[in-house]
């Protein structure tokens, strides 16, 4: 038997417990039936244990999503924690699936588990990556779309961590606008 040093068994606790979800678009089932909780974790090592053993987002079939949300918040508009909120949306072009998507998603995950948003951590609900043939999307979901200053600070931090060039803007859309939109996209409440 291998003798394991106690140091090897120490795990680093996270500020929040996070749950990873997976969505696969099976049109024969209800939307909610297609959304599955993979597992929840609350240490750095358990995050990596999960991340290292699931498929990279860029290799998922079109129509699939990964979501990482605080434990207890479901990755849907209807959840009590999400319904007054919105999301910062990063739209990727088709080329970026191979060049940027996995890096963007990992960086977003590290922002979440590492509490990169500092005092605004309570505004953060989670994030979702949508794999779609028409264009992949990364969304950072927040709790309250009316909190303008907080929302803008979160957007700026996200843009900084993803190293999105200054000249490229990203928009924030309230879930209530997205749910009632007439066209293909909801209006931006904020932009950075």
């Amino acid at each position: 038997q291998q003798i394991v040093s106690p140091d090897m068994l120490i795990k680093h606790p996270l500020q929040n417990r996070w749950a990873m979800w997976f969505f696969k678009n099976d049109k024969s089932k209800e939307w909610t039936a297609n959304l599955k909780l993979i597992t929840a974790f609350d240490t750095v090592e358990d995050f990596w244990g999960l991340y290292n053993h699931i498929q990279k987002a860029s290799r998922l079939p079109s129509g699939c999503d990964y979501s990482l949300f605080k434990d207890g918040i479901q990755p849907m508009w209807e959840d009590a924690s999400n319904k007054n909120g919105g999301r910062w949306l990063v739209n990727l072009n088709k080329n970026q699936r191979q060049t940027e998507l996995d890096n963007f998603w990992l960086e977003t995950l590290l922002c979440l588990i590492g509490e990169a948003f500092d005092d605004l951590t309570d505004d953060i609900c989670g994030a979702t990556i949508n794999i779609r043939n028409k264009g992949d999307k990364l969304g950072l979901w927040t709790r309250d779309a009316r909190r303008g200053d907080a929302t803008l600070q979160i957007g700026k931090k996200l843009k900084e961590r993803l190293k999105i060039p200054q000249k490229i803007g990203i928009g924030f859309q309230a879930h209530s606008d997205t749910a009632t939109k007439a066209g293909s996209t909801a209006r931006d409440r904020y932009r950075v």
Binding site: E45, N52, A116
Partner: peptide
């Protein structure tokens, strides 16, 4: 009292004993 981890700190554990 909050647990903040920067990206470099988090990345060093990707291939840690407990993670693999």
């Amino acid at each position: 009292g909050k647990k903040h981890y920067d990206r470099e700190f988090l990345l060093q554990f990707q291939n840690d004993y407990n993670a693999i």
